[in-house]
Design a protein around this nucleic acid. Structure first.
Length: 322
DNA sequence: TTGTGTTTTATTGCCTCC
DNA sequence: GGAGGCAATAAAACACAA
């Protein structure tokens, strides 16, 4: 069967069973509503039994076979309500046309219908259904792409979360070390001031961490690890107080009486944004917990006198936390 | 052969555009 | 208001396992 004129044989047969084949399309004789009003939309048919249910599996072949052609004609015309699938060639032709343009202008529809021996409405329906199938496939593809993208982002996010937790615990660990060292230094200074005796009594000095009692100190260090804000800020208020020129002013009293250090120092405990993250770092590890970094010489990280025995990496992390 | 799931063809009803 | 598109759906055709 020649592509483009697939039904020339049957057309000829129906027009004149003895005449040679012509290129006359089938629908001009067979499916035109003006000339064949007996065929409604339910009678739109393909003349090729792809599934072998037709006569000898092919309606065309059936017509080619002289001995049973009439039989097949009878069989064919006695199933006016049966749906017929389009032939492979017809579908191929339509697919090709669809690839070129998935919308169907009236002229193209008429031409396709004529070429394939179908009713224009059949062609339109085929395109309609084809567009629907294409859309479904497209949606599936889009879904796949989005799903993959989502999975990738999710994995990335989880990695970042793990990394964040790791860094947090590192910072906490380092902070504990710093606190322990601070505490020891405080004790040393206290001992020194004790040996100086009463000569210093006229100029009492409060060491930075003096006001942090044993209990409070341990409280702070445990807090840093456990990230408990109130206790940290409580310790901080004491230390700030010791340095503060307004040690006994009303604000301080109010803070102390209030019993809740968050009254003046109230960090956000959530960790959902970068800003909050920064705030958290600063509130968790405020400047009073560390020596003034600008006073520390990092030029030689191996110099234990000024690097607290931490490695260069520790310093980097420290600086970051600071 | 038959039951069942999938695909294809066709209809219906609604909506938009000219 | 008619033509055409689309979504939802029906129903025939088909594939396939049991």
């Amino acid at each position: 069967m020649a592509a483009g004129r697939p039904f020339s044989d049957i057309t000829t047969f129906l027009r004149n069973q003895t005449a040679p084949p012509t290129s006359q399309p089938l629908d001009s004789l067979f499916l035109s509503s003006s000339t064949a009003p007996f065929l409604g939309s339910r009678s739109m048919m393909s003349f090729e039994g792809e599934g072998g249910k037709g006569c000898n599996g092919s309606f065309f072949r059936a017509f080619d076979l002289d001995e049973n052609g009439d039989e097949c004609m009878d069989e064919y015309f006695h199933q006016p309500e049966k749906k017929r699938r389009l032939s492979a060639n017809q579908v191929q032709f339509l697919e090709k046309s669809f690839e070129e343009e998935n919308k169907l202008e009236p002229e193209r529809k008429t031409k396709l219908a004529k070429d394939l021996g179908l009713q224009p409405r059949q062609v339109a329906i085929w395109f309609q259904n084809r567009r629907a199938r294409w859309k479904t496939k497209q949606l599936e593809k889009d879904y796949e792409i989005l799903h993959e993208s989502f999975e990738s982002l999710k994995a990335n996010y989880e990695n970042l979360l793990r990394e964040k937790d790791k860094l947090k615990s590192e910072v906490a660990h380092l902070s504990e070390k710093v606190l322990a060292r601070e505490k020891e230094e405080g004790k040393l200074k206290q001992a020194e001031s004790g040996t100086k005796g009463l000569q210093d009594q006229e100029q009492p000095q409060r060491p930075i961490l003096d006001s942090v009692s044993e209990g409070e100190g341990s409280k702070v260090s445990s807090v840093v690890g456990g990230c408990k804000q109130e206790d940290i800020s409580s310790a901080r208020s004491d230390i700030l107080d010791s340095d503060s020129p307004h040690y006994a002013d009303g604000v301080h009293s109010a803070v102390l009486e209030h019993g809740d250090s968050s009254y003046v120092f109230e960090p956000d405990q959530s960790d959902t944004s970068q800003d909050e993250e920064d705030n958290l770092s600063k509130s968790l590890y405020p400047s009073y917990l560390f020596p003034k970094l600008e006073d520390v010489d990092y030029s030689d990280p191996t110099e234990s006198s000024c690097n607290f025995g931490f490695s260069e990496e520790d310093h980097a992390l420290w600086t970051w936390a600071y």
